[in-house]
């Protein structure tokens, strides 16, 4: 956009400088607001319980201790078990990786068909899939629980993978469809004349073009699945819970003393994978967010 800030007439330079200064001050204040909870979590997780009780929320730790992290990782109690977050962290990894891979692959094929191989009814199918993105999942919770039970997948990791793939397809299809729809239809025609078939065209021409949207989709799906709580809490049992459920159990476990430092360390551990993804590939994360909302 045209530079609105520099548009003000160059009357008093002093006045202008004051305004700029205020602007930066306000922006800085908000940055503090967003950062403070993370800061508090981090410092709390490095303090001993005595220091927490004695000191203030925002004070830096006097004696840095990593034992809350060790506890959170390997011995904090999630109810009756006291194995820390570790097994659940790996559960989440085991759920997220196949679910992300499968839903992304399906979305890519679906998007390719809907955008480039239009047939009668394709738009209706797309609309139906799109509506599926917006339902509150509560409305499928009960029948899904029964179905997983019937399939023998109740409380299992494959069951959770299945659920995440099914309810991820809508968004992944949307992402790929919106990306492929910008590719001129002539490309498929040219490849058809060249003798290439449906899969050949996808593999040789569309897939090599798709890296940006694959990154967007994988990040989106990973964030969604890693952060999921509703499916995790509804369809898992003691040994198969994902990390979010375990974190909630640790925080709300009523046995023994309330260990705030362990809670915070556990929260950071649970948040770390998505935070790292965000810091490394924030651009793609934001693109997914806006694509999922603006273009939805």
């Amino acid at each position: 956009m045209t530079d609105l800030a520099s548009s003000s007439p160059p009357r008093a330079g002093w006045n202008r400088r004051l305004l700029r200064w205020m602007l930066y001050a306000i922006l800085g204040l908000f940055a503090l607001y967003y950062l403070l909870p993370l800061f508090v979590m981090l410092t709390t997780s490095l303090k001993s319980l005595e220091e927490i009780r004695a000191g203030s929320l925002i004070a830096l730790p006097r004696d840095v201790t990593f034992s809350p992290w060790a506890t959170a990782w390997s011995s904090a109690c999630t109810g009756i078990q006291c194995e820390g977050l570790r097994p659940y962290f790996w559960n989440s990894v085991l759920i997220a990786i196949p679910a992300v891979a499968l839903s992304t692959m399906l979305g890519a094929m679906n998007g390719y068909v809907i955008a480039q191989w239009r047939f009668r009814g394709a738009n209706l199918i797309f609309s139906l899939m799109l509506f599926g993105c917006f339902i509150p999942f509560q409305v499928v919770l009960l029948p899904m629980a029964r179905l997983l039970g019937m399939m023998g997948l109740a409380g299992s990791i494959p069951g959770l993978i299945f659920v995440h793939v099914i309810y991820g397809i809508g968004f992944t299809t949307l992402f790929f469809r919106n990306y492929y729809v910008t590719i001129p239809a002539d490309l498929v025609k040219a490849a058809k004349v060249d003798g290439a078939g449906f899969f050949r065209i996808f593999w040789s021409i569309f897939l090599p073009l798709s890296l940006p949207i694959i990154v967007v989709t994988v990040i989106w799906q990973f964030t969604q699945i890693w952060n999921d709580f509703l499916f995790g809490v509804s369809f898992s049992e003691a040994g198969t819970q994902p990390v979010t459920v375990a974190l909630n159990n640790i925080v709300n476990s009523t046995t023994g003393v309330k260990e705030y430092n362990v809670d915070m360390a556990a929260a950071i551990i649970a948040a770390l994978p998505t935070l790292i993804v965000y810091v490394v590939a924030g651009k793609y994360f934001v693109r997914g967010l806006t694509a999922g909302s603006v273009k939805g």
Partner: peptide, 10 residues
């Protein structure tokens, strides 16, 4: 990018 559970805990 955070889970609502993490936000809630914090």
């Amino acid at each position: 990018a955070l889970s609502m559970i993490v936000t809630g805990t914090a």
